[in-house]
C-alpha cells in the first residue's frame, strides 16, 4: 500500500431501474492490494454495483475512476482490458468447453493472434498459443483444479466450478478481481479452503473486491468493508468497527443487539 492513490474510486454512483432506485449516491474507494468486502442484506444493490463497475450496466448517475482513468458508459470488454475481472453470483462458465479452454478464453484479452495468425500458424502465433496453454494450466494449478483440466466445465463439481471462474478471471491479468459471492452454496470445509485461496491473491499484486453473505468469511478475510442497504452505503471501515456500527446492526441483523 505504498501507492496511496486508490485503485478504484466510485463517486456518487446511482442506478435506476424504472422507478426503482437500486443504487443511490454510492461513493467508495478501494486501495491497491487490499481485500475489500461488500456486504448487505439481499436486494441491497451489491450485484448491481458489481454490474456497474464491470460495464454490464451503465450508471444513471455518477461515475468511477479506475487505475487513474475515468470510465463512463464503457462496454464490459473495455473494463476487462483495463483490468477489472469478475466472477458471477450464478456461475456463468462456458459450460460445453473444457476447464482449460475456459481459462484460455480468459487470456484472450491479453493476447493478439488474429485470423491471419490462426490461418498461417506462424511462429509468433504458435508460441503465443503455447504461452496461453502454459499460463492457463498454471492458473488451474493455482486454484487447485489441475486434474480435471480436460473435463467439460459443466461436469465439474460446484466448488470446482466456483474455482474455475476465479481462474478464468485471473487469466485476464486483472488489477482488480471482483468476486460475487464466491462461497455461496459451499459447506464449511469448502469455504475454509476457498478463504485460504483468496488470501493468497493479493500476493499476486491483485486487489480483491468481494461480495459475500458469509459474515464470518468477510470478517476474517477483508481489510475493509462497506455495507450497502437499500442501495445506499450505510457504513465503511475495518471489519471490527463495522460490525459494531449500530446502523449496520439495525439493517443487516434486523434488531438491536448482536
Amino acid at each position: 500500500m505504498t501507492d496511496m492513490k486508490p485503485l478504484l474510486r466510485l463517486s456518487s454512483i446511482g442506478k435506476q431501474f424504472g422507478g426503482l432506485s437500486a443504487l443511490s449516491d454510492v461513493s467508495l474507494h478501494i486501495r491497491r492490494g487490499e481485500i475489500y468486502g461488500l456486504i448487505g442484506p439481499n436486494g441491497a444493490g451489491k450485484t448491481t454495483l458489481f454490474n456497474v463497475i464491470t460495464g454490464l450496466y451503465q450508471p444513471s448517475a455518477g461515475g468511477f475512476e479506475f487505475d487513474g482513468k475515468k470510465y463512463q458508459a464503457c462496454k464490459p470488454h473495455v473494463l476487462a482490458k483495463a483490468g477489472i475481472a469478475r466472477t458471477f453470483q450464478n456461475i456463468r462458465l462456458f459450460a460445453n468447453l473444457t476447464a482449460l479452454e475456459n481459462v484460455m478464453i480468459g487470456r484472450h484479452v491479453r493476447t493478439r493472434a488474429g485470423v491471419f495468425g490462426a490461418l498461417l500458424r506462424d511462429r509468433a502465433t504458435r508460441s503465443e498459443e503455447h504461452a496461453i496453454t502454459e499460463r492457463s494450466r498454471e492458473l488451474l494449478r493455482y486454484v487447485g483444479i489441475e486434474k480435471p483440466a480436460q473435463t467439460l466445465a459443466k461436469h465439474l463439481s460446484y466448488g470446482e466450478q466456483r474455482r474455475l471462474e476465479i481462474a478464468r478471471a485471473l487469466a485476464t491479468d486483472p488489477l482488480l478481481l471482483a468476486l460475487d459471492e464466491p462461497a455461496a452454496g459451499m459447506n464449511a470445509t469448502e469455504t475454509e479452503s476457498l478463504k485460504a485461496l483468496l488470501q493468497t491473491i493479493p500476493d499476486r499484486g491483485i486487489t480483491v473486491l468481494l461480495i459475500e453473505h458469509d459474515v464470518k468469511l468477510i470478517m476474517g478475510l477483508c481489510d475493509r468493508v462497506a455495507v450497502l442497504d437499500y442501495g445506499r452505503k450505510i457504513a465503511e471501515g475495518v471489519p471490527e468497527d463495522v460490525r459494531k456500527d449500530p446502523a449496520v446492526i439495525a439493517a443487516y441483523l434486523g434488531s438491536g443487539d448482536e
Partner: peptide, 25 residues
C-alpha cells in the same frame, strides 16, 4: 480457425455472451 484464439472466442460467445464480454471479448 477452430483451434485458435479466435475460434475459442467464438465458442465462448456461443456458450455465454455476457460472460464472454466480461472476460474482455
Amino acid at each position: 480457425l477452430e483451434r485458435s484464439r479466435i475460434g475459442r472466442a467464438w465458442m465462448a460467445i456461443r456458450e455465454d455472451e455476457i460472460a464472454a464480454s466480461a472476460m474482455g471479448l
